[in-house]
């Protein structure tokens, strides 16, 4: 039996009459790369924000790394990393300052900060940019930096909300190398994306349509179930029925 690190049970979020996330139920296992797919407006971000303790569910239950999403949000936050859809490191701080700041907030010691930031900058090949303001970096590098900052404190789970949106194919490839490296170290990856080639990289995928999880399986199994040749086709078959959208 695999370790369950995320477990949701009929997790729901309503905004007035609008049900953004409707009775979501699934489990995510330790060390797995879990793809969270869905069209724009399907409720992915809402669901993810609930799992991160940024948003209170309207009903249902969920535990993240064993902690309850209603009562133990601060415990959850110690154990997760989060990279939002919108770039949210400080543009007016340098690469090094951002790393040190977030590391410090997560309670890393000075020694850890020093070794971690050196390691990180070397891995990302940002040696010559370390003292430059983050605002001046190209998007692809910003995203890689964001990811690295999100896993700096060695969280059990990292949530990535469209981490590669607007990033070129080469950088996307490099980004996924970072994800694989983290997963190999036992970090669970929970990722949303609109790129179906990226979906193929995931161990398992859920597809959300209009606030509900309509399919959940490995990419191979999904293609078989939907009698499709590619993930693209699977997604299309499911998302076609969607009533919500941009």
């Amino acid at each position: 039996m695999q370790d369950v690190v995320i477990k949701t049970d009929n997790l729901t979020k309503r905004f007035g009459d609008f049900v953004a996330a409707n009775a979501i139920t699934f489990e995510v296992y330790k060390g797995e790369i879990f793809g969270f797919l869905g069209a724009n407006g399907a409720g992915k971000t809402t669901a993810m924000r609930m799992l991160c303790g940024l948003s209170k569910p309207s009903s249902g239950n969920a535990t993240i790394a064993g902690y309850d999403v209603y009562r133990e949000t601060e415990e959850i936050k110690k154990n997760i990393g989060y990279m939002s859809q919108k770039f949210s490191l400080y543009e007016d701080l340098t690469v090094l300052e951002n790393i040190r700041f977030f590391g410090g907030i997560y309670g890393l010691t000075n020694n850890q900060l020093k070794t971690k930031s050196e390691e990180l900058i070397e891995r990302l090949g940002l040696e010559s940019e370390a003292k430059k303001l983050v605002g001046s970096l190209p998007l692809g590098w910003k995203q890689k930096l964001s990811f690295s900052v999100a896993v700096l404190h060695e969280p059990k789970i990292v949530f990535l909300d469209e981490p590669t949106g607007g990033v070129d194919p080469v950088t996307r490839r490099q980004f996924w190398d970072l994800i694989y490296a983290a997963a190999e170290n036992g970090v669970t990856i929970f990722v949303t994306t609109h790129y179906m080639d990226e979906a193929e990289y995931c161990n398992r995928i859920s597809i959300m349509v209009d606030g509900k999880v309509e399919a959940l399986d490995s990419p191979t199994q999904l293609k078989r179930n939907f009698n499709a040749s590619s993930m693209d086709e699977v997604f299309y078959q499911l998302a076609r029925g969607a009533k919500r959208g941009d």
Binding site: L54, Y82, S84, S88, F102
Partner: peptide, 13 residues
């Protein structure tokens, strides 16, 4: 507005 507060709110600060 910039969105940086999200990154703060998701830390155990």
């Amino acid at each position: 507005e910039v969105g940086t507060i999200e990154q703060i709110n998701v830390t155990p600060i």
